[in-house]
């Protein structure tokens, strides 16, 4: 939208709304604003598919903003799919660590492409896990 010219006079009547209103301006108002009343037909306006459209409209600013060094809103997870991804990755990492800890500090053998904990952990001595171990290591 281009800059709106201010006419010298202010419309006397109640707002009639910009006639050539930007679709994004309208969407963010008719979807997000107004008094929400639970109707008989439940439409979640934040529904996934709808959200993808909205993300296309809004979220690209996160990447471009970061490039320009303006990133104060990127901590909003609703805005930043990357932030959401990294949060998920972090959660996954913590879960893996907990799982590893629960299983006695030893990775469970077959998977685990990354860091294997040192074999000789205190106390376990020569005892090996019964399964999933064997020839692999």
């Amino acid at each position: 939208m281009t800059q709106l010219d201010y006419a010298g006079s202010v419309p006397a009547s109640y707002p009639s709304g910009p006639t050539t209103a930007n679709l994004a301006d309208i969407l963010e108002r008719v979807l997000d604003k107004g008094i929400v009343i639970a109707g008989d037909i439940k439409i979640d306006l934040l529904d996934i598919e709808l959200l993808t459209i909205r993300l296309r409209l809004f979220v690209s600013s996160v990447e471009t903003a970061k490039r320009a060094g303006i990133d104060w809103w990127e901590t909003d997870p609703a805005l930043s799919s990357r932030a959401a991804e990294s949060a998920l990755a972090e959660e996954n990492r913590q879960l893996r660590d907990r799982l590893a800890a629960l299983e006695g500090g030893e990775p469970s053998g077959s998977d685990d492409g990354g860091r294997r904990s040192p074999k000789a952990r205190s106390g376990t001595g020569g005892r090996r896990r019964r399964d999933g171990d064997g020839e692999g290591s």
Partner: peptide, 19 residues
């Protein structure tokens, strides 16, 4: 919503509020 506001204050409801 905009047309209705010409006559006085209006409180919009979100799109697709249905009964």
């Amino acid at each position: 919503v905009t047309a209705a506001s010409a006559a006085g204050p209006v409180v919009p409801l979100p799109l697709a509020t249905l009964f």
